[in-house]
Amino acid sequence: GQVNVNNTTYTFPTPKLAKEFAQKAAKKYNLTVHVSGNTVTVK
């Protein structure tokens, strides 16, 4: 799974890890998680 945070893309071996990372990043920066297919964007 891929996660985009502040124009930086992070790649994870599983969608589960990507989702967990996205949720932590969203909480940390007070942003929202947007899911589109296999790509998760935090903005």
Rank of each mutant, 00 (worst) to 15 (best):
P15R: 06
L31G: 05
H34T: 15
N6V: 14
K27F: 07
V33Y: 06
V5N: 11
K43R: 11
K28W: 14
T8Q: 09
Q2G: 11
T14K: 02
K43T: 15
T32A: 09
Y10T: 02
T14Y: 03
K28M: 13
T8A: 08
K28L: 14
T39P: 00
Q2L: 11
N6G: 12
N6D: 09
E20K: 11
G37A: 04
F12N: 00
Y10S: 02
K16E: 14
T9R: 08
V5P: 11
N30E: 05
A18R: 00
G1A: 12
P13V: 05
K28A: 06
T8C: 15
V5E: 12
K19R: 13
Q2W: 07
N30H: 13
K19N: 10
Q2Y: 08
A26N: 05
V35F: 03
L31M: 09
N4D: 10
T41E: 05
T11W: 14
Y10G: 01
A18K: 00
T14I: 02
L31A: 08
V35R: 05
L17G: 03
Y29M: 06
V40G: 00
T9I: 13
F21L: 01
N7M: 15
P13G: 05
A25S: 04
T9M: 09
N30G: 15
K19S: 07
N4T: 13
T39G: 02
A18I: 01
V5H: 13
H34N: 07
A22Y: 02
F21Q: 01
N7I: 15
N6A: 11
Q23D: 13
N7Y: 15
G1H: 12
T9H: 07
T9K: 09
K27T: 08
Y10F: 10
S36P: 00
V3E: 12
V33A: 04
G1F: 11
T14H: 04
V40E: 00
H34Q: 11
T41Q: 06
V5L: 12
N7E: 15
T32K: 08
T32C: 12
E20Y: 08
Y10M: 05
F12M: 02
K27Y: 07
K19T: 06
T8F: 15
P15D: 08
S36R: 08
N38W: 02
V40P: 00
T9Y: 10
K16T: 08
K28I: 12
T8E: 09
P13Q: 07
K27D: 08
K19M: 14
N6Y: 14
T32G: 05
T11V: 14
E20L: 14
A22V: 02
N7Q: 15
V3H: 13
V40D: 00
Q23V: 11
Q2K: 12
A18H: 00
Q2N: 12
Q23K: 14
F12G: 01
Q2F: 10
V5D: 11
G37E: 04
V35L: 10
N38S: 08
T11G: 02
T11N: 06
Y29N: 07
N30K: 09
A18F: 01
T32W: 07
V3L: 11
V40R: 00
V42I: 15
T11K: 07
V33S: 03
L17M: 12
A26E: 10
Y29H: 10
T41N: 04
N30M: 06
P15A: 14
E20M: 12
Q23Y: 10
T32R: 05
T9G: 03
V33D: 00
V42S: 01
N7D: 14
V3S: 13
F21P: 00
T9S: 09
N38Q: 04
N6T: 13
K43H: 14
T11L: 07
N4M: 10
V35H: 03
K24S: 06
N38E: 03
V33W: 03
G1Y: 07
G37W: 03
A26K: 14
V42G: 01
Q2R: 11
T39L: 06
N7T: 15
L31V: 13
F21S: 01
K43S: 15
T39E: 06
H34W: 11
K19D: 06
V42W: 04
L31K: 04
T9E: 07
T32S: 09
T32I: 13
K16H: 09
K19A: 10
Q23G: 05
E20I: 13
V42A: 02
G37K: 04
P13F: 04
Y29V: 06
K24C: 15
A18D: 00
T8I: 15
T11H: 10
V5G: 13
G37C: 02
F21N: 01
F21H: 01
V42L: 08
V35A: 03
T39S: 06
P15I: 12
N38A: 07
F21D: 00
P15W: 06
N6M: 14
F21G: 01
V35P: 01
K28R: 10
K43D: 08
H34S: 14
F21K: 01
K28G: 04
Y10L: 08
K28E: 10
K24R: 14
V42E: 00
T14M: 02
V40H: 00
N30T: 04
H34A: 09
G1M: 13
A26T: 09
Y10D: 01
G1L: 12
T8P: 07
A22T: 01
F21W: 15
A22L: 02
L17C: 09
N30R: 06
K27E: 12
K16R: 09
N7W: 15
Y29Q: 07
G1K: 12
P15S: 11
A26V: 11
V35T: 03
N7L: 15
T8D: 09
Y10R: 04
L31Y: 06
V40Y: 04
Y29E: 05
T39W: 03
T41Y: 08
N4E: 10
A18N: 00
N6R: 14
V35C: 04
G1P: 13
Y29K: 09
P15N: 11
K43Q: 14
P13M: 06
V42T: 02
F12Q: 01
P13D: 09
F12R: 00
N4R: 12
V42K: 01
G37V: 03
K16S: 09
N4P: 11
N38P: 03
T8L: 14
T32V: 13
K24D: 04
T41F: 07
N38L: 07
K27M: 09
T9Q: 09
V3G: 13
K19W: 15
F12A: 01
V33P: 03
T14P: 00
S36M: 10
V40K: 00
L17Q: 11
G37Y: 03
T39M: 08
K24I: 14
N38I: 06
F12V: 00
Q2M: 12
S36N: 11
V3P: 11
F21A: 03
F12K: 00
A22S: 03
T14A: 02
A26P: 02
N30Y: 09
H34R: 06
V33H: 01
V42Y: 03
T14Q: 02
T14G: 04
Q23E: 14
N4L: 10
K28T: 05
K19Q: 14
E20R: 12
L17Y: 04
N4K: 12
A18L: 01
N30Q: 07
Q2D: 11
T41I: 14
Q23H: 09
V3M: 10
K27Q: 10
F12Y: 02
T32L: 07
T41H: 05
Q2E: 11
A22K: 02
G37D: 04
H34L: 14
P13S: 09
P15V: 13
G37L: 03
Y29D: 05
Y10W: 08
L31T: 07
Q23R: 14
A18P: 00
N30P: 04
K24G: 04
L17N: 03
K43M: 15
K27P: 03
G37M: 04
V40T: 01
T11F: 11
N38D: 03
K28F: 13
V35M: 04
S36T: 09
N4H: 13
N6H: 15
A26S: 09
H34F: 13
T32P: 05
A22E: 02
V5Y: 10
P15M: 10
Y10Q: 02
T11I: 13
T41L: 06
G1T: 13
V40L: 02
Q2S: 13
P15H: 14
N4A: 12
K19V: 09
A26L: 09
K19Y: 13
T8G: 08
Y10E: 02
V40F: 03
N6I: 14
V35D: 01
F12I: 00
L17H: 06
K43E: 14
Q23N: 09
K24N: 08
K16L: 09
P13L: 08
N30S: 06
A22H: 01
G1C: 15
V3D: 12
P15F: 10
F12D: 01
H34M: 13
N4V: 11
A25W: 15
V40I: 04
T14W: 03
A18Y: 00
G1N: 12
V33K: 00
V3K: 12
E20F: 07
T41M: 07
T9P: 02
L17I: 07
N7F: 15
V42N: 00
